[in-house]
Amino acid sequence: MVNLAIFDYGAGNIFSLKNSLEKAGATVDVITNFDKPNIYSGLLLPGVGNFDPAIKSISKSKTNFHEYVKDNTPVLGICLGMEMFFEKSEEGNEKGLGVIEGDVIVLPQSMKVPHMGWNNLEIKKSGKILEGVKNESWVYFVHSYRVNPINCDAITAESDYGIKVPAVIEQDNFFGTQFHPEKSGNVGKIMIQNFLNVCKK
């Protein structure tokens, strides 16, 4: 059994994510700080909320986020959760977690923001989260910002909105999706199961 934690920023309903993980066979705790010992096989940063309040919620813990996950706890960041991996965001003034070099920028004015809806994935390279996912698979997005990594090797899939938007990233023990796998049907289920498989190792 895979024992996972979802970090709750206090910003919204994370029931659908918890439900998706439990349906995939995981046991799931919802945590609001990192003050207790890390007993988990993996950690999820969900895609609900705003950048500054979410970062402040994480940084109020007695234990530092980096110390908590170190280099061996797989972390899946969804939408905002992935954006928090980076050094800063145009959505706020707080410093990001800085586990991936780069920043987060607003989607161009030529697009309707927030961008909501189904878009297909252009898979650039193989990745643990994408195992078994076919190129051009459709997933569900709700976002106003996009990540801008310095090292493009971290990007394993993009979506094309007229501009290329990083959709999946993998670097070390950090995995991110700009879309919501818990709302992305069977394709999302594959990715959630893939993350569980990473956590089992």
Rank of each mutant, 00 (worst) to 15 (best):
Gly49Gln: 07
Ile155Lys: 05
Gln171Met: 11
Ile169Ala: 13
Gln109Tyr: 09
Leu45Ile: 13
Leu17Pro: 05
Pro53Met: 04
Gly162Asn: 04
Leu196Asp: 04
Gly185Ile: 08
Lys88Ile: 03
Leu121Glu: 07
Asn93Tyr: 07
Val142Thr: 02
Asp103Glu: 10
Lys128Arg: 14
Asp160Arg: 15
Gly49Asn: 03
Lys70Thr: 13
Lys189Asp: 12
Gly42Trp: 14
Ile192Pro: 00
Leu196Ala: 12
Gly162Asp: 02
Lys70Ala: 15
Tyr68Trp: 07
Lys128Gly: 14
Gly127Ala: 09
Phe141Asn: 04
Tyr40Gln: 10
Ser144Ile: 00
Phe85Cys: 01
Asn33Ile: 04
Ala54Asp: 12
Leu17Tyr: 01
Thr32Gln: 10
Gly81Thr: 06
Phe65Gln: 11
Gln178Leu: 15
Asp71Tyr: 06
Asn120Ala: 14
Val113Gly: 03
Ala154Glu: 12
Glu136Ser: 12
Ser159Asp: 11
Ala11His: 09
Phe179Arg: 03
Val30Gln: 09
Trp118Leu: 04
Lys36Val: 09
Asn33Gly: 08
Asn50Phe: 14
Glu158Cys: 14
Val113Trp: 05
Tyr161Ala: 09
Asn194Ser: 01
Val106Asp: 14
Ile78Arg: 12
Asp35His: 15
Leu121Met: 15
Tyr40Cys: 11
Asn120Pro: 07
Ile100Leu: 15
Phe85Tyr: 08
Asn64Lys: 14
Ala11Ser: 07
His180Lys: 06
Pro46Leu: 04
Val2Tyr: 10
Ile6Tyr: 07
Ala154Gly: 06
Pro37Ile: 03
Gly49Cys: 02
Lys95Asn: 12
Met1Arg: 15
Cys152Thr: 11
